[in-house]
Design a binder for these strands. Structure first.
Length: 271
DNA sequence: CGCCAGGACGCCC
DNA sequence: GGGCGTCATGGC
């Protein structure tokens, strides 16, 4: 990992990271882009806030971040100890994946908080990304600007959450909050389970089906073999992989999925 | 205006 | 087990 401390900031050199591709690709919903000449995002992980700027291609400024905080928090969050160059070389055995990696090679899989991920992807069902962000924004605003803890949300009802305007998802959010807040569901234990057991456990929450469970496993528990299939990935599988997804990528199928998701969604822009 | 969205549920057969 | 209507809301 190539970084150094400069004044109160961290300068990171990482060719396999692009802020737009990683922070605005539908895996996380609480990063906002700061308008201006440079590419800057501000957002949160757990109780820490970060403002990060892409100085130039592959070079980043983590503003007002100590070396200790960088190493203990953001290196993990941005998965900086994984070699994505190596992953992309492996994926590129496959023709479609090679194109996808070439199109958006700056995607990384963020290591997000499992609880926030669970709530976020319950909200995501049959919804679009701008509106998902809006609902999560209203939720955090209501809790003084931070993402509510399971304990804080456990008492909510669909009526008390009506300000979210989350529609039919309100009752699902309440069931998730009640189960996690009460300890009936232990996300830390689920994260360590064999994956099929983990899937089954997550799906005991109302509103958590195959897709949402897979997203929680991939984005919130870093189970890289999890492979969420939404309408976009379904199109990819039908069009490019009629005989199945390549077995060599199985262990990291979820990361491959990220490249493919971004690729297929933006294909209309490059043809 | 109509179609769609990082789907899941309930019901039917 | 697979197929289908329904569920709120609002982005485009």
């Amino acid at each position: 990992m190539d970084y150094y401390v400069k004044n109160n900031d961290i300068i990171l050199s990482q060719p396999d990271l692009d802020l737009d591709e990683t922070l605005d690709c539908g895996q996380a919903f609480r990063w906002t882009k700061i308008s201006g000449g440079e590419i800057t995002y501000t957002g949160h992980f757990l109780d820490s806030q970060l403002t990060v700027t892409q100085i130039k291609k592959g070079e980043f400024l983590f503003r007002n971040v100590s070396e200790e905080e960088f190493l203990s928090k953001w290196v993990g969050y941005f998965d900086l100890e994984t070699d994505y160059g190596e992953l992309k070389r492996m994926f590129s055995e496959d023709e479609t994946l090679a194109k996808a990696c070439g199109f958006a090679g700056g995607i990384r899989l963020l290591r997000q908080n499992s609880w926030e991920c669970l709530i976020s992807f319950i909200i995501s069902q049959n919804n679009n990304i701008p509106r998902i962000k809006g609902i999560i924004q209203r939720l955090c605003d209501n809790y003084g600007g931070h993402f509510p803890t399971p304990g804080e949300m456990a008492h909510e009802t669909p009526e008390s959450l009506s300000y979210l305007r989350s529609g039919f998802r309100g009752k699902y959010l309440c069931d998730g909050a009640q189960k996690v807040g009460s300890g009936e569901i232990d996300l830390r234990k689920i994260a360590e389970m064999p994956i099929d057991e983990a899937r089954t456990a997550l799906k005991t929450i109302k509103g958590v089906g195959p897709k949402v469970a897979e997203c929680v496993l991939l984005f919130g528990m870093h189970r890289t073999e999890a492979f969420p299939v939404d309408v976009w990935i379904k199109r990819v599988l039908e069009e490019y992989y009629p005989n199945g997804f390549p077995a060599f990528a199985k262990e990291n199928a979820g990361i491959a999925q990220q490249y493919l998701f971004h690729y297929i969604r933006n294909l209309h822009k490059i043809e």
